[in-house]
Design a protein around this nucleic acid. Structure first.
Lengths: 190, 190
DNA sequence: CCGTTAGTTCAATTCAAAATGAACAAATCT
DNA sequence: AGATTTGTTCATTTTGAATTGAACTAACGG
């Protein structure tokens, strides 16, 4: 084993083995011409966090820009400043609205709707967990039950059966624990 | 808004808007011919969990198969039963070894090395957090500091500056909190 | 009420991660 | 040591999500 890294595993992007950085790319992604340096920095933060939990880059960009704007922005402002397509902005804003990350506030009379970044992290985290881990844990629980049934049907040596049964139990316990943790976790932020 | 879903956001696969299931695909993925039904079920569990946190499917498959095997398996067994390429198995096993998810145990004299699934979830979770969220949080912290500096240079209205400054502070506090949570989280499983 | 502009939806395209395959290296056997 | 089998590395291919683009629908202005 060459790289004596301290047992870490990376996700999306530099898939653990040998993080080959593309040379001159000092910055994470290419620069974003429409934004102030301040905005750029904030956007990067949210893009990074988002990617770490598997969200599309554009979601992070949109949220980041709104977060960095003291007053609400309209659809077209977001679109132009980030240089995204209308489609992306539409979908991104919708998703962010749905999880409560972005609050639509009626603009002044006559004008279009505007959007404000919700800064209550609790809700965001909650929505994320609910959308990713939660369902997977639920599916997993079902599958484990089924696996338990299948295990009994299998003709294995007494000892082997024993080992696997113990493992399954352990995993099920873990699942329960994790399931119980999620709501608590969501509450932790607020 | 048509779909009145309870504010959840999905990652990888059905990207939240309208989860259009591909008709007859009752099963998550296609069936795995080389495995017993029991093994299939267990593999599915780990593939699912893995994907939920952004790991390649093959990693989940390999770990799942080992988890479902009472005795350690050799490289070629893993490769053949899962029907993966040698390359995938090699890389997958390496990554799993590095994070301590898989334990190499010398086979009987003369024979090849064999692999056993580590069932200590604590370590796995720890490695995962260390590899995904941890680095991102670190990067984020730096960027936020930088953003704070940039904000002061910007000429904004008093009030706006105030608002953004408050937001930044909040986000930084959140970051710290999250950073502190990780080790605790890792410990929670064990 | 028709013309115009703003926003949505979804098929087609792009892009990057994951899997493969084959050249290479290491180990085992005779 | 040479031959053969086992495992690694990495360039290429595949795969599937993210983004775009353009047809469509809804809102506003005259």
């Amino acid at each position: 084993m060459k790289t004596a890294s301290p047992a870490a595993i990376a996700v999306r992007r530099p898939a653990l083995p040998a993080a080959r950085a593309p040379a001159g790319a000092e910055n994470g992604g290419r620069s974003r011409p429409g934004l102030t340096p301040f905005e750029q920095e904030v956007v990067e933060v949210f893009v990074g966090l988002g990617q770490a939990v598997g969200l599309p880059k554009s979601y992070g960009e949109i949220y980041g820009l709104l977060f960095a704007s003291p007053r609400p922005l309209g659809f077209s402002e977001v679109q132009e400043r980030l240089g995204l397509s209308q489609g992306s902005v539409s979908q991104g804003l919708r998703a962010l609205r749905e999880i409560g990350a972005v609050i639509p506030c009626a603009g002044a009379e006559g004008s279009r709707e505007r959007y404000l970044a919700a800064t209550e992290m609790r809700q965001l985290v909650g929505a994320l967990l609910r959308g990713t881990l939660q369902p997977e844990l639920a599916r997993g629980r079902k599958r484990l039950a089924q696996a338990g049934r299948l295990l009994e049907q299998q003709r294995l040596g007494e000892a082997d059966q024993e080992v696997l049964s113990a493992r399954l139990d352990k995993l099920q316990a873990w699942h329960r624990k994790a399931g119980g943790l999620l709501p608590w976790l969501a509450k932790f932020f607020g």
